[in-house]
Nucleic acid binder design. Structure first.
Lengths: 118, 118
DNA sequence: TTATCATATCAGCACTTGATGATATAATGA
DNA sequence: TCATTATATCATCAAGTGCTGATATGATAA
C-alpha cells in the first residue's frame, strides 16, 4: 500500500531525528565527531554517568547513528556515517540564522541556568 | 562562562531536532516542501486534525522552522529557510543507508500497521 | 450588524522519554 | 582461579510530550 510506505518513511525519519533530539545523545555524538571513544572516555568528555551513556549508546547504535567495535576489554564507538557530521554542520548553519527563534521557543523548556553534571 | 555556551548550543540543537522528531510535524514540513499552504490545505494533505496542526504549526513557527503570512482570512505557512529542505534531503540519504538499522531499533516503537487518518 | 469560516487556545488525559542507582555480565590482569 | 575493570541491563520514578474536543478569537461575506 502506497500510503503506508510513506507513513513508514516518516516514522523512520522521526526516529532518526529523535536520536538527535536529546542533549545527552547530542553530547555523545559531538564527542564522537572528534574521534572514536570508549564509554569511559565519553564519561570524561561529557560528564554524564556511565549507565546513562550506555543506555544512550545502545539507542544510537540500534538506530544506526554509531557503530561499536570491541578491542579487548574496551568497546569503541564511532559515528556510523560521515554524513552524520554533515547533518550536524548543516544544523549549525541553520541555527546560526534561526537561533533567535529557537531560543524564543517556549514549547520546550531551555533551562536558563542549565548546567552539566549536577 | 565557556561551558554554559556549549551547553546552550546543545540545548538549541536538541530543540531544533525535536521540531523534526514527531511524525505529525514531519508530515506538515513535508507538505510545505512542495509549496506554502494554509491550515485547511495542510489538513487535506496530512489527514491530521485542525487543532493538532495548529498546535504543531505554533511550535514550528516559534522554533523558526516555518514562517506565516496572513492573506485575508487565510494564514499561509512556508518553510523558513531553504536549508530545511536540504536537511530533510540529507536525512533521506543517510536513511537510505542506515534504514535497516533504524527500522530494527526497538527503543522507539514504530507501529507495524501504522496508518494515517484513523 | 450578524453569520460564517479560518485558526488559535485551552484543559485534561494517556503515553513516551530520560535519569538514577543497583546489579549482572564479560574481558583482562594478577 | 579470583579480583578488578568496563560495560550492559534493569526497575522505578518524574517530567515531558502529543492528541482530542470544546471553545475563543479574528477576518470576511452577506
Amino acid at each position: 500500500m502506497l500510503m503506508s510506505s510513506e507513513k513508514l518513511e516518516l516514522e523512520l525519519k522521526a526516529k532518526l531525528f529523535r536520536g538527535f533530539s536529546d542533549t545527552s545523545r547530542l553530547s555523545i555524538l559531538e564527542a564522537l565527531r572528534v574521534q572514536p571513544l570508549n564509554v569511559g572516555e565519553i564519561v570524561q568528555a561529557t560528564g554524564l554517568s556511565q549507565s546513562n551513556i550506555s543506555n544512550h549508546l545502545g539507542c544510537l547504535r540500534d538506530c544506526g547513528l554509531v557503530m561499536s567495535e570491541q578491542q579487548g576489554r574496551y568497546t569503541y564507538y564511532r559515528l556510523a556515517d560521515d554524513r552524520i557530521d554533515s547533518l550536524l554542520r548543516l544544523v549549525e548553519e541553520v541555527l546560526s540564522d534561526v537561533a533567535k527563534g529557537v531560543y524564543q521557543c517556549t514549547r520546550y523548556e531551555v533551562p536558563e541556568g542549565a548546567n552539566n553534571d549536577e
